[in-house]
Design a protein around this nucleic acid. Structure first.
Lengths: 182, 182
DNA sequence: AGGCTCATGTAACCGGTTACATGATTAT
DNA sequence: ATAATCATGTAACCGGTTACATGAGCCT
């Protein structure tokens, strides 16, 4: 299960609340992993029960109390065990409802196919624009991060960038082929 | 929900049993969509209840009877409605436990990062080899398929090919950067 | 006045995975 | 003998999504 381990990953950077964890997910790994609050809070409880995390309650005035979580030694061990771990199966979890749609679009009009790819293209280009702020984000957080973390963050950002570029080129070539037969 | 619609997509090609549907999934869309028998059989029942599919029982000797399913007019309408449908969100369903691992690998030794990417590279290259038979497969099935189906099958195959090529180039560049700092 | 932020959670539901169950036939 | 193929399913579980609940404070 990756959710628990990615939470451990964040806890390994700094003490954090469930609320801020949700924001951390959104502003970093959201391109390749999502986590809702409704998942995060129970997951934190589960991590604590297993002895992988601990929390202190911070009493606040005027706003709700918060629980600051930190990773334990046992949790750090579990994180590193997982990082070096065997069961990778990196390609098996690829899934795309969009490609299913493409696959079965054979008896629609070419115009509809073109529209399908055009919308996809647009989404990809919007995502590319959104990615522009990432290098600055990485630099901003580089201070808190131990070791080579920013390098690895960059690796995942480059993956996203290459992926979107590839998708755009692919969609354009599909559209070109459909325009030929129209 | 894509499972129901991809089943309708297959039923739109020809009458088929749940058993053969499972094989069809495995030998065609398995790169971007999986479906187990334990999902397919209940899904076929649900499609029938909604009036999107119907079945005839074929009595056999020496082996179990089978249920041959076909798509109904209502089911075909639903399929085309879905194909032309709005809610695309083609990028939102991207998910990768592997990239999570990469993201949090910042305080491991460079050697471990290199191993992680090397294993990924290997998986990609194996997948590329497995893809070699696809053009022949597409040609073999082109006969039964109506309209431009083979073209769209090819589109998805080209996506897979481009994706793997991109992954390989990316992993190689990550390894190169890690070897620099080692 | 209305909506957003902070902060924690619960409950119902849904889709997918794994394991289990049956039982004859055919290929190695 | 053993395993795979044919053919249908059920049950338990697990992870994730959506909606709901609370309630003070702050911004427009």
């Amino acid at each position: 299960m990756s959710l628990a381990h990615s939470i451990l990953g964040f806890l390994n950077y700094e003490k954090i609340t469930g609320y801020d964890l949700a924001k951390a997910f959104q502003s970093s790994v959201q391109f390749f992993w999502h986590a809702q609050k409704s998942q995060i809070y129970p997951a934190l409880n589960a991590l604590e029960e297993k002895g992988f995390a601990a929390h202190e309650t911070i009493v606040q005035k005027g706003r709700p109390n918060k629980k600051l979580y930190c990773i334990t030694e046992k949790g750090r061990e579990e994180l590193f065990r997982w990082l070096s771990g065997g069961g990778v199966q990196a390609l098996d979890d690829f899934k795309s409802a969009f490609l299913v749609r493409v696959f079965f679009s054979g008896n629609t009009e070419p115009e509809q196919g073109i529209r399908l790819f055009a919308r996809f293209l647009e989404d990809c280009e919007k995502a590319l624009v959104r990615m522009e702020s990432i290098p600055a984000d990485i630099e901003r957080y580089a201070a808190i991060a131990p070791g080579d973390a920013p390098l690895y963050w960059q690796f995942t950002a480059e993956f996203g960038y290459s992926y979107l570029k590839m998708c755009i080129a692919w969609a354009e070539s599909c559209i070109a082929k459909l325009e030929e037969i129209r």
